[in-house]
């Protein structure tokens, strides 16, 4: 564990708390892509079921339980409690374009050709693109509530912080995880446009609006 990874994980944790806060206080999931949230459930379940056979630390296990539990809870809120505020007609990204390529990539790139390792690779690839339906929705509507952008920023910062973590680990432990690093760089790259608008507009007190 190093500082970059810890701050990254805390940022990830914060992003979910911000999202829950947004949904609970506005009693609405407007502006949130159900598809992205469903993909995160798939990511966490595929990757964190190793809870049952791999013990790393109490921290690690507690975070895994939290991420699986909170992502399922968010789906429940969107699908049942605040269903009327969820508008599927603007959440139109075709997720099979993500699921199928990720499944194929995980069969080719994995550290061991066995179900658990293939699932791990699949979750890494899927996580890297899971935000696309959300970004696509943002692009379509052209604007977002400030709190939604804080959620996305925290999520992006989490991934960005994993990059210095890998560099640090490479020099201190000599470890390199090519699958996680490649997917992680792609994932962070997807946020660059968003970050630009977030830092130049939202953090200056302006509304998040994309140029027409």
């Amino acid at each position: 564990m190093n500082l970059f990874r810890l701050l990254g994980d805390l940022s990830h944790l914060a992003s979910i708390l911000v999202l829950l806060h947004k949904i609970q206080t506005s009693r609405s999931c407007r502006g949130i892509s159900f598809k992205t949230q469903a993909l995160y459930v798939a990511v966490f379940v595929a990757r964190y079921l190793d809870l049952f056979w791999r013990y790393i630390s109490l921290y690690n296990s507690a975070m895994k339980v939290f991420f699986i539990g909170s992502s399922c809870y968010i789906l429940y809120l969107m699908k049942y409690r605040y269903r009327p505020t969820n508008d599927p007609s603007i959440d139109t990204f075709r997720i099979e374009y993500l699921l199928v390529p990720c499944a194929i990539l995980s069969l080719i790139f994995n550290y061991n050709f066995m179900p658990t390792e293939i699932l791990w690779s699949f979750s890494i690839f899927l996580e890297s693109v899971a935000i696309l339906p959300q970004l696509f929705m943002l692009q379509r509507t052209g604007e977002a509530e400030a709190i939604t952008t804080h959620y996305l920023a925290a999520l992006g910062i989490y991934r960005a912080l994993y990059i210095p973590n890998w560099i640090y680990r490479y020099f201190t432990e000599g470890v390199i995880d090519p699958i996680a690093v490649t997917a992680g760089i792609v994932q962070t790259g997807l946020y660059l446009d968003f970050f630009y608008v977030y830092f130049t507009k939202v953090l200056q007190g302006q509304k998040f609006e994309l140029p027409a």
């Binding site: 990874r5 994980d9 990830h12 190793d50 791999r54 790393i56 690690n60 975070m63 895994k64 991420f67 550290y111 061991n112 390792e117 791990w120 994993y162 973590n165 432990e173 000599g174 470890v175 390199i176 995880d177 090519p178 699958i179 996680a180």
Partner: peptide
């Protein structure tokens, strides 16, 4: 351990 398949990251 220090191999990629240790998967100690979240």
């Amino acid at each position: 351990s220090a191999t990629p398949d240790a998967h100690d990251e979240l």
